[in-house]
Nucleic acid binder design. Structure first.
Lengths: 192, 192
DNA sequence: CACACTAACGCAAATATTTTGCTTTAATGC
DNA sequence: GCATTAAAGCAAAATATTTGCGTTAGTGTG
């Protein structure tokens, strides 16, 4: 994750790991409780049973900690569902992704990952997406289908969604993105 | 701009306006000087000849102030150049936009607008883009050309660029986005 | 133009957060 | 085990943020 790295023999075992888990969990608990005013380094530290200075030294700031937690939340917990066809796989995946990301907590996650000025965490999210797509593509190839490239999927479907989440007040329904998907799959010319 | 709004008779004249200008200028000056560590509310206040509490009361936090300043910076200072054709107008505009946004300060601007949790500022940026596009479209229509819709331009060109700026470590050269543009203009099928 | 009204600023005390130096705890390698 | 030292704890110091209250100066009215 995005924690400050040391050169000397790092020591990731035991206590360090426990602190990491406790702090991340504390963040999630406080986030779940609502009250964004309660979400401060001292509060998180208290909830995690840890000293504030520990958090400052390991994560640097609340924003970086939140960025780490958000990146962790955004890691997919399972393979994309197999529906039997490329189009079905992508539609199902897209439905879940749109729902997750355009929700209030979803938008917050996106903002948080970007917030920490920690390019690695943002890049990680992109990597997660690529991996999901690659597994869908692999299945498609195994079926004899010819899937679009990952870059095309990112440019034509993910990017428009994220752009709207970040820069506009309302995000379209899934149908809008399903349409973008079909344009890609059918090699349609751009809608004018 | 994103400053806290009051219901009672607002008082935007004279002193308030001067403070606003002084504070924004102070932020720009400190940003220009580099040293991100120097960029704190007390420092900005000192540079602007103002009390910190003034900034806290008007802007709430450094992040919101930076968001306002970034939104202001992102406001286009002129009409898009007229090159005589739709494709030329869009290519020229795109060249400048890619150069501006993928630079180090450009990326910082994007992060800053989004940073303040101030959806209005982000939405403003999208509006600026729409306006630029609309003026290019109007010229195209006057020439008898048929320009793509604003949404298509945002989805197919701007969104991929912003996505890469925010989520990946390297942003492609202009040529990449010129290609996306030509795909849109020529109604080409998606590249596989 | 003088005057009342009050939004927005300044000032300074009260809080809260962040940094830092030093001590203690406990992983890791031998 | 035992030495070594990364990472945590603790507490004082430094900074940043909030808040109450007095002052300044836009704004509307007579």
């Amino acid at each position: 994750m995005g924690e400050a790295r040391q050169r000397g023999g790092a020591r990731p075992g035991g206590r360090s790991a426990r602190v990491q888990v406790a702090v991340h969990r504390a963040v999630r608990e406080l986030q779940a409780k609502g009250e964004p005013g309660e979400l401060t380094v001292p509060t998180v530290a208290a909830q995690a049973g840890v000293t504030p200075s520990t958090i400052y030294r390991r994560w640097g700031s609340l924003a970086q900690l939140l960025s780490d937690v958000a990146a962790e939340k955004l890691r997919p917990d399972s393979e994309p569902e197999d529906t039997g066809s490329l189009r079905g796989d992508l539609r199902t995946w897209l439905e879940q992704y749109v729902e997750e990301m355009s929700s209030q907590p979803g938008r917050a996650m996106v903002r948080d990952v970007l917030g920490g000025n920690q390019p690695e965490n943002a890049a990680l999210c992109s990597t997660y997406l690529r991996q999901q797509f690659e597994s869908i593509q692999a299945r498609a190839l195994a079926r004899g289908e010819t899937p679009p490239s990952t870059d095309v999927l990112l440019d034509r479907i993910v990017a428009p969604m994220i752009y709207r989440i970040l820069f506009t007040s309302s995000v379209p329904e899934v149908e809008y993105f399903w349409r973008l998907l079909d344009d890609v799959l059918e090699g349609k010319p751009a809608a004018q």
